[in-house]
Computed example of a mutant assay.
Amino acid sequence: MEEIRLNKFLSEAGVCSRREADRMIEEGRITVDGKKAETGMRVRPDQEIKVGKKVISMSREEEVLLAVYKPPGVICTTDRREKRNIVDYVGYPTRIYPIGRLDKDSEGLILMTNIGGLVNKMMRAANYHEKEYLVTVHKPVTEAFLERMAKGVRIRKEEKGEVLLDAMTRPCQVEKLGKYSFRIILTQGLNRQIRRMCEALGYQVTHLKRVRVLNIELKGMHPGTWRKVTDKELKELLELLRGSAG
């Protein structure tokens, strides 16, 4: 019987992303045949794999892909200990989890699914998948600001003297919409990237909304609602992902 990595098993079983699985393994929340799991271990489908007290199997009721309009204050995590986690907020009857993140203070489109292979292809930064945002800032948007945002900005994050993030953002598309607002299309998803880019240039974000991920759009949705991705959208999405690493 073929063995696979435990994080891949949990992803394909629709429990969570591989990254989230690794975190839960490190926290000791996963057991295999009654013993605490270890990061990187391989498992067989005939073994007893549990998340907490719940036994996980590869079978699932349906393959799901939802477009969710996340309002501010909801956290994109599968950790049920967070009071406003997006899994409980959506309350879908089949186990699903978010593809990537949208920070707590932001709103807009987040995709949720139980299709592990789809998540892995969409999450890989090397695949350059587009995400579009509408942003409002605290002072007038200048041409110089737009030009610097488009070329790429060095962003950093430090905690207690430790550098957690130090990166130059990729060139991106930026368009002025109003005196204090602009549209930006990214092909990467660094932690709080747009907010950090703006801060590096002396701007504070006052409102941020994601309106598109690849071909899936937020158009016509209201905060707190969700919908199933249409067959047409899914077909287009799979075409866009064709050849992507996963």
Rank of each mutant, 00 (worst) to 15 (best):
D22Q: 05
K139L: 03
I194M: 11
K121W: 01
E38I: 01
S181D: 14
V141I: 09
E132C: 05
H129S: 01
K70M: 10
Y128A: 14
E159Q: 05
I30Q: 15
L238E: 04
S181Q: 06
L111N: 13
I155F: 11
N127L: 09
P171S: 02
D103Q: 11
G220S: 10
Y133V: 09
V153A: 15
I56C: 15
A167M: 06
M41D: 13
G202V: 02
V205Q: 09
E82D: 12
L118Q: 10
I110F: 07
K131E: 04
L214C: 14
R84D: 13
E61Y: 00
T113C: 08
H222S: 13
H129V: 06
E61V: 00
L177E: 15
E82M: 09
D22I: 05
R156G: 11
L164H: 10
I110G: 08
V153I: 09
R242D: 15
K121R: 15
L218W: 01
S106T: 02
G224K: 01
A13H: 02
C172E: 06
T142P: 07
T225D: 14
G40W: 00
I115H: 11
P171E: 06
D103P: 04
M123F: 04
V68R: 08
I110N: 05
R154F: 02
K228Y: 00
I110D: 12
I30Y: 10
E107T: 05
I4F: 04
K151I: 00
Q193L: 02
L109P: 12
Y180E: 12
N120T: 08
H138W: 00
G14S: 04
E175K: 14
Q188M: 02
M1Q: 03
C16F: 03
M58K: 10
A144P: 04
G73T: 10
Y97R: 03
A126Y: 00
T169N: 15
I115Y: 03
E143Q: 08
K70C: 15
V211C: 12
R29N: 12
E175R: 14
N191W: 00
L241M: 13
K35S: 14
R195V: 03
E2C: 06
M168D: 14
